[in-house]
Design a protein around this nucleic acid. Structure first.
Lengths: 203, 203, 203, 203
DNA sequence: ACGGTCGGGACTGCCCGTTCCT
DNA sequence: AGGAACGGGCAGTCCCGACCGT
């Protein structure tokens, strides 16, 4: 048991170190030597736990996916509107991205040319946004003429943009940023017109 | 003269080849050998025109910056609302990204960890969006309580998101996508309906 | 007791697996991981039985040496001519090489640069051939002017050649091959003239 | 021109150094660093001339094949018996093996498990022996009942054996060794004595 | 005694960006 | 502009030891 516990700790250390180096240097540029040194273990230990560099990246992604699932919470809370769930989800995502290196690394891995095909975190995020918006549509929370998938794409584009920009300047991940986005987006989304009944967004 | 013309042609071939390889493999992974081979010139020729790999990337960026300036047009057209200029600019940008490899490469270079600091294309785009929206504010085209900079950030986030997503799946750069975004965003941006009965920004 | 029996079995499995991998990949290229996996035991088990890679190779050699001793039979059979013993020995050797992986591996280990100095199987074979031919000389079975050591070297060269060639194409180890060799070699060896009916070597 | 000359010289130096290291350590164990260092050039220079380790080995083989062709001389000399050509060829081969590292390396490469399939030097040697013996048969120089191919296999086995043994102990390649072999082998090969009282091929 | 998990350190082949000398 | 050469660095693999369970 003590053995396995130790093994699990070095595994976690490796994943965390990898996430840190990946975010700073990118997957391709990051060297396994740097990662193992930062984790305080040897090269051999790294290759005992992960067969190759890609496998290490996938492990980072898996850990990030778990964080993402914790954020999306597996769906809407009972008694809460789907739209609120969505807004809250984006808020929690950006906040988590600002704090959690592993989550950030997991998302950034999606952009590296070496793993473009295998990466999946943005895909999962997109699916959740689409699903939640479809649910909002079923709840009648969306304005007439608003397609849930079209709205989902706008939301995904904006959040991915924040994530990418936030990788270099974390102020993009502040709560004000995401709030400002929703201030502009929500009114058109909700039925029928937030301020005045006659104000339809899509004439 | 013929000499210079030939030199300029190989220079352009190099830039184009570099853009193609950069978009496919990313700056770090792209090898100068691949690029020079694709351009049909020798290794020595490449280093005659560009001192090192970064200089080549900067040349790609410069070419992309020129394309971007052609798109942003140096400012608002006279007699056109600034908001219309903005909407049209985003439309032309996404369309150009879908077609022009060099422009796309220039933007993607912004994401590579090796050149993060030096890259500037997204910055220029952001400045133009901010400037144009400030002008719209001066024109009174923005709704009350809408800060032009806040709006600019939302627009930049969304467009950058489209660009990043479009690098892997070009459907993100289709005109429907950007149109869908503006359908949701414009209404909240423009002056409140009460005062102006017809508040559509895109006539 | 059951423990020791099990231990002996894994030891044998290891030796056999090592022989198989050694013949296919050679000593240097063969990896202990491959060997232990093929034997169905773990890396640690291997190192419990054999201190290092060379020790494993020596164990293979020892097993092969036992097979070789079974073949050479410890010397000439009483009442049998030494020359007959020699011919029969070569026949049995090639036959055994074709069937017994361990024996083949033992011989091939002699060719690997890492163990050239320590290996001894070919040396033992050579000594036996020399010894047997010297005995034949004492028996007066050799033609005049034939030095037993010179003949031994020719026989050793040919058998080693067959062994080496047989490692890649087992047809070199067929009984016809070795028979064909003796058909050409024996007449000159035996006294006095090959073509006289009275001097048959194989009665 | 001077450039190409220099290039060719380093290429030759590389091939020679490779041959030396290959014979001493074997293909697998030999490190490219050792080879390039011994040739007095850098690691990069090596990879400029040879794409990978195997390509270097092939170049060594090619050079060795040329030496072999010089030895086999492209066939029998006019006015010389094919059998004499064969005997002389084996003599020259063993002598060359003792002196020429590249030739020796070329042959030894045939035994390495990594290149077993691609290697071809022994095959070429075998073909020449077979061809020459077939010609001897056509000349009526072979005794009745002797198949030229069977004899070829015996000769090939012996020469390969000498080569292999000679790799560790060069005395196997001395002229006495090969002479001793032919003393035992030739009489049975040549036409029956009855007609010619002195039927030794090597006077 | 016997075997397994985990980890260490060294090394190798390959490739890359760059420079030198024509 | 180009062929040739340089030196450094990376991922992956290997052999091995140390510590634990049974």
């Amino acid at each position: 048991m003590a053995k396995q516990e130790r093994a699990s700790r070095t595994r976690q250390a490796l994943i965390r170190a990898a996430a840190e180096v990946f975010t700073r240097q990118g997957f391709t540029l990051a060297s396994l030597t740097t990662i193992s040194r930062r984790a305080g273990v040897s090269n051999g230990a790294l290759h005992f736990h992960f067969e190759n560099k890609k496998a290490l990246a996938w492990a980072v992604e898996d850990a990030a996916a778990q964080s993402l699932h914790r954020i999306t919470g597996g769906g809407a809370h009972p008694g809460e509107g789907a739209l609120d769930t969505l807004v809250d989800g984006t808020r929690r995502l950006t906040a988590a991205l600002a704090e959690d290196v592993v989550l950030r690394a997991g998302f950034e891995l999606n952009g590296d040319p070496s793993l473009r095909n295998e990466a999946r975190l943005r895909g999962e995020w997109q699916r959740w946004v689409e699903e939640t918006l479809r649910q909002a549509a079923r709840q009648g929370a969306l304005a007439e003429g608003i397609s849930s998938d079209g709205a989902a794409r706008a939301v995904v584009a904006a959040t991915v943009g924040l994530e990418v920009l936030g990788a270099q300047d974390s102020s993009w991940l502040s709560s004000e940023r995401i709030q400002g986005f929703w201030d502009l987006m929500l009114p058109s989304l909700t039925s029928p017109c937030p301020r005045e009944p006659s104000c339809s967004a899509a004439p």
